Deep mutational scan, measured.
Amino acid sequence: NQESVVAAVLIPINTALTVGMMTTRVVSPTGAPAEDIPRLISMQVNQVVPMGTTLMPDMVKGYAP
């Protein structure tokens, strides 16, 4: 099972992602793949992402898996 990126903390809208904001988990439906964490760092979210929420590609500005 592939791990997806999950918010480790509450991420406010327009916040640039840091490694400490993200964790990985096997979830369904799958979100952004765990191996993309290095690409996701410094990208901004376009909505509030509550802690424990799977990071879906459409939540991150300019990100395409």
Score class of each variant (00 low, 15 high):
residue 42 S to D: 12
residue 10 L to P: 03
residue 50 P to D: 08
residue 30 T to R: 15
residue 60 V to E: 05
residue 49 V to I: 14
residue 15 T to D: 02
residue 39 R to L: 12
residue 61 K to F: 12
residue 9 V to Y: 05
residue 11 I to K: 00
residue 27 V to T: 12
residue 4 S to Q: 02
residue 54 T to R: 00
residue 52 G to A: 02
residue 30 T to C: 14
residue 9 V to E: 09
residue 22 M to L: 14
residue 30 T to H: 15
residue 56 M to H: 06
residue 52 G to M: 06
residue 11 I to F: 03
residue 18 T to C: 09
residue 18 T to L: 09
residue 21 M to Q: 04
residue 27 V to M: 00
residue 22 M to A: 07
residue 7 A to Y: 07
residue 7 A to Q: 01
residue 49 V to C: 04
residue 19 V to R: 15
residue 12 P to Q: 09
residue 54 T to P: 03
residue 27 V to C: 08
residue 1 N to P: 14
residue 29 P to H: 03
residue 39 R to E: 06
residue 42 S to N: 14
residue 7 A to H: 03
residue 48 V to E: 15
residue 58 D to G: 13
residue 56 M to P: 01
residue 57 P to V: 09
residue 41 I to H: 00
residue 20 G to R: 12
residue 13 I to W: 07
residue 5 V to G: 00
residue 33 P to Y: 06
residue 36 D to R: 00
residue 39 R to A: 07
residue 12 P to W: 09
residue 40 L to H: 03
residue 64 A to P: 11
residue 65 P to D: 10
residue 11 I to E: 00
residue 28 S to Y: 15
residue 53 T to S: 12
residue 12 P to C: 09
residue 64 A to M: 13
residue 15 T to Y: 06
residue 2 Q to P: 12
residue 24 T to V: 11
residue 46 N to F: 09
residue 53 T to Q: 11
residue 47 Q to H: 04
residue 17 L to P: 01
residue 51 M to P: 10
residue 8 A to Y: 08
residue 43 M to D: 02
residue 45 V to E: 02
residue 64 A to R: 15
residue 38 P to D: 08
residue 36 D to K: 00
residue 16 A to W: 13
residue 27 V to S: 03
residue 4 S to N: 03
residue 59 M to Y: 05
residue 13 I to S: 11
residue 48 V to I: 12
residue 50 P to A: 10
residue 37 I to V: 08
residue 33 P to F: 06
residue 27 V to K: 00
residue 51 M to T: 06
residue 3 E to A: 15
residue 45 V to I: 04
residue 4 S to E: 01
residue 28 S to L: 12
residue 40 L to P: 01
residue 36 D to E: 06
residue 28 S to H: 14
residue 56 M to Q: 10
residue 8 A to Q: 06
residue 40 L to T: 00
residue 56 M to F: 08
residue 50 P to G: 06
residue 21 M to K: 00
residue 19 V to D: 08
residue 26 V to Q: 11
residue 10 L to F: 13
residue 37 I to S: 01
residue 31 G to L: 02
residue 21 M to E: 06
residue 42 S to Q: 08
residue 51 M to V: 10
residue 10 L to R: 12
residue 54 T to W: 06
residue 41 I to T: 02
residue 18 T to N: 05
residue 49 V to N: 01
residue 41 I to V: 14
residue 32 A to L: 15
residue 17 L to E: 03
residue 62 G to Q: 05
residue 24 T to S: 13
residue 42 S to F: 09
residue 21 M to L: 01
residue 5 V to N: 02
residue 36 D to M: 08
residue 50 P to K: 10
residue 55 L to A: 02
residue 33 P to C: 07
residue 55 L to R: 01
residue 13 I to Q: 13
residue 1 N to D: 14
residue 16 A to S: 13
residue 28 S to A: 11
residue 62 G to R: 00
residue 17 L to K: 00
residue 50 P to T: 10
residue 61 K to T: 13
residue 8 A to C: 09
residue 34 A to E: 03
residue 46 N to I: 09
residue 17 L to W: 05
residue 65 P to L: 12
residue 36 D to F: 04
residue 58 D to H: 15
residue 27 V to E: 06
residue 52 G to T: 01
residue 1 N to F: 13
residue 14 N to Q: 05
residue 59 M to V: 03
residue 48 V to G: 05
residue 19 V to F: 15
residue 64 A to G: 11
residue 6 V to F: 04
residue 34 A to S: 07
residue 63 Y to H: 03
residue 25 R to A: 13
residue 60 V to K: 00
residue 23 T to D: 10
residue 10 L to W: 11
residue 3 E to G: 11
residue 65 P to N: 10
residue 52 G to F: 08
residue 39 R to Y: 11
residue 61 K to N: 14
residue 24 T to Y: 08
residue 12 P to S: 09
residue 39 R to T: 10
residue 40 L to C: 07
residue 4 S to W: 08
residue 12 P to T: 09
residue 48 V to T: 15
residue 12 P to R: 09
residue 52 G to Q: 03
residue 5 V to W: 07
residue 21 M to G: 06
residue 52 G to H: 08
residue 65 P to Q: 11
residue 53 T to P: 01
residue 38 P to C: 13
residue 55 L to M: 05
residue 63 Y to G: 05
residue 50 P to R: 10
residue 30 T to K: 15
residue 60 V to I: 13
residue 27 V to Q: 03
residue 44 Q to H: 12
residue 42 S to G: 15
residue 12 P to N: 10
residue 44 Q to I: 15
residue 17 L to M: 03
residue 47 Q to N: 02
residue 22 M to P: 07
residue 16 A to N: 11
residue 1 N to C: 15
residue 17 L to Q: 00
residue 26 V to C: 12
residue 6 V to I: 14
residue 50 P to Y: 10
residue 21 M to A: 05
residue 44 Q to P: 05
residue 31 G to R: 00
residue 1 N to S: 13
residue 59 M to S: 05
residue 63 Y to E: 04
residue 14 N to Y: 12
residue 25 R to L: 09
residue 13 I to M: 13
residue 47 Q to A: 06
residue 4 S to R: 05
residue 54 T to V: 07
residue 43 M to E: 02
residue 30 T to P: 15
residue 30 T to N: 14
residue 32 A to T: 10
residue 61 K to E: 12
residue 43 M to T: 02
residue 48 V to P: 11
residue 42 S to I: 08
residue 54 T to I: 06
residue 21 M to H: 08
residue 20 G to Q: 14
residue 19 V to P: 11
residue 41 I to K: 00
residue 16 A to H: 13
residue 29 P to W: 07
residue 58 D to R: 12
residue 31 G to I: 00
residue 24 T to Q: 08
residue 11 I to A: 01
residue 13 I to Y: 11
residue 24 T to G: 07
residue 60 V to T: 03
residue 43 M to K: 14
residue 37 I to K: 00
residue 27 V to I: 02
residue 50 P to H: 11
residue 7 A to P: 02
residue 16 A to G: 08
residue 34 A to F: 04
residue 44 Q to W: 09
residue 5 V to F: 05
residue 31 G to F: 05
residue 62 G to F: 07
residue 28 S to C: 12
residue 18 T to D: 07
residue 5 V to R: 00
residue 57 P to R: 06
residue 56 M to R: 07
residue 6 V to W: 06
residue 11 I to M: 00
residue 9 V to M: 11
residue 54 T to L: 05
residue 11 I to R: 00
residue 63 Y to P: 04
residue 10 L to T: 15
residue 3 E to Y: 13
residue 32 A to Q: 01
residue 59 M to T: 02
residue 49 V to F: 06
residue 26 V to M: 14
residue 37 I to F: 03
residue 62 G to C: 10
residue 2 Q to H: 13
residue 34 A to R: 03
residue 32 A to E: 03
residue 41 I to C: 06
residue 41 I to A: 03
residue 38 P to K: 09
residue 8 A to H: 08
residue 42 S to E: 05
residue 35 E to N: 12
residue 4 S to V: 06
residue 52 G to C: 08
residue 62 G to M: 05
residue 18 T to A: 09
residue 47 Q to F: 09
residue 12 P to K: 10
residue 62 G to W: 08
residue 19 V to N: 10
residue 28 S to R: 10
residue 33 P to E: 03
residue 6 V to A: 00
residue 31 G to D: 00
residue 9 V to G: 00
residue 4 S to P: 01
residue 30 T to L: 15
residue 8 A to P: 00
residue 37 I to A: 03
residue 10 L to E: 12
residue 41 I to S: 05
residue 60 V to Y: 02
residue 17 L to D: 03
residue 51 M to S: 10
residue 57 P to I: 08
residue 43 M to A: 03
residue 65 P to V: 12
residue 11 I to G: 00
residue 60 V to C: 05
residue 63 Y to V: 03
residue 18 T to P: 04
residue 54 T to G: 04
residue 23 T to K: 07
residue 34 A to K: 10
residue 48 V to Q: 13
residue 20 G to K: 14
residue 38 P to N: 10
residue 30 T to Q: 15
residue 7 A to D: 01
residue 11 I to N: 00
residue 24 T to K: 12
residue 63 Y to R: 00
residue 3 E to I: 10
residue 54 T to M: 05
residue 39 R to F: 11
